[in-house]
Design a binder for these strands. Structure first.
Lengths: 194, 194
DNA sequence: TAACCTACCAAACACTTGTTAGGGAAGGAG
DNA sequence: CTCCTTCCCTAACAAGTGTTTGGTAGGTTA
């Protein structure tokens, strides 16, 4: 099957990209990891750029499917945040290489080539989803009102996604368990109440 | 003055590295930004690697000076965390380019060349400082006991340092103000108490 | 004036990079 | 058997990379 082989190659490419960084990775390293020669990759893909492109779009497509389902569920602000965080950690579990690449290279890629304009779109759309929910929570009296909401947004967003830099699937905690603890910290803090 | 010019060049190099990534940055781009030709950089520095090296060591030296002062002050766990976070944001304010580089490239550089072994040392030492304080806080009944402490550590560490990716000196909030809000979120959470 | 040092330029070097062109082995379809 | 498609290899290319070498304008020192 043709698509199957492409998928395998994209998976190994994603691992190498995530481990070394996009620019530091040569097509020969990817080919090595796949057990073939550099030129042979070009039978399957147009270019090195096309590989990251496909890796990132596949991840973002699945991410939006999950997020849209959450946002359409009509949950309250707090439950929406909980569901988004949980969904994010599931995505990190399934696409941890792609998430790491997105985290590290999105800005550079978006600046470099109009081909990656959808990365900037994704960033804006993500901001709207999170910020909107936070604002709704503040209005509803669920979240604190004394915080700069943009700072809060970046705080929540970053705490979730940087986890991709250290998370490895199949480790001690499941995505749901990590989400539970992260949510507990973000919502209630790490200090002990009296 | 010789050292002065080196400092200027390192500052512009740090900006380019932070903006584009270490590997994506060519010595010709650095030279362009400095208003000279690529080869002329080699009058001041041995190599491109030597430049990042000097940028990172300068930052880490100053960071440890600040951290050691905090750790030697004999504060309680909560006050130590507060002081470390505040000190970190001050460091991000002063060395935001170096911090961004450290965040993005430390792992790759440490793996690549024994020259950057001190980066792995720094990571271990950082972990000891934060984890030790957190453990002390749990033992003292200042922090919650129901959380995985290694997860808590990564949570606190990441929330602080990723700020370097979006923070620009001279923006709306001072480092101290950002530290105050971050600490408020980390310690008490973003949910409203009833 | 003469010798010298600093900070840069001009031009090239060896090497790595992403990419391409042509070919060939394996296997299924007719 | 023959044709054709799939998938990879061999071998090279041009462009870009970090780096080196020799030179030189301008200021400082003797």
């Amino acid at each position: 099957m043709r698509e199957e082989r492409r998928g395998e190659l994209l998976a190994t490419a994603a691992e190498v990209f995530a481990a070394q960084g996009y620019n530091a990775t040569t097509v020969r390293q990817i080919a090595d990891a796949a057990g073939m020669l550099a030129g042979s990759l070009y039978y399957h893909f147009d270019s090195k750029e096309a590989m990251v492109d496909e890796i990132l779009t596949a991840f973002l497509d699945e991410l939006w499917a999950g997020y849209d389902a959450v946002l359409a569920a009509g949950l309250g602000p707090r439950e929406t945040i909980e569901a988004l965080v949980t969904e994010s950690f599931r995505e990190i579990d399934r696409h941890h290489a792609a998430v790491a690449i997105y985290q590290k290279e999105a800005r550079y890629l978006a600046d470099r080539h109009p081909r990656f304009g959808y990365l900037a779109d994704a960033r804006r759309r993500l901001a709207r989803a999170w910020l909107g929910t936070l604002e709704r929570g503040v209005a509803d009296g669920v979240f604190r009102t004394d915080l700069d909401i943009r700072l809060t947004y970046r705080f929540v967003r970053d705490t979730v996604w940087v986890a991709a830099s250290w998370y490895r699937p199949g480790a001690r905690h499941s995505p749901e368990e990590i989400a539970r603890q992260y949510l507990s910290m973000v919502l209630d803090g790490i200090a002990l109440r009296d």
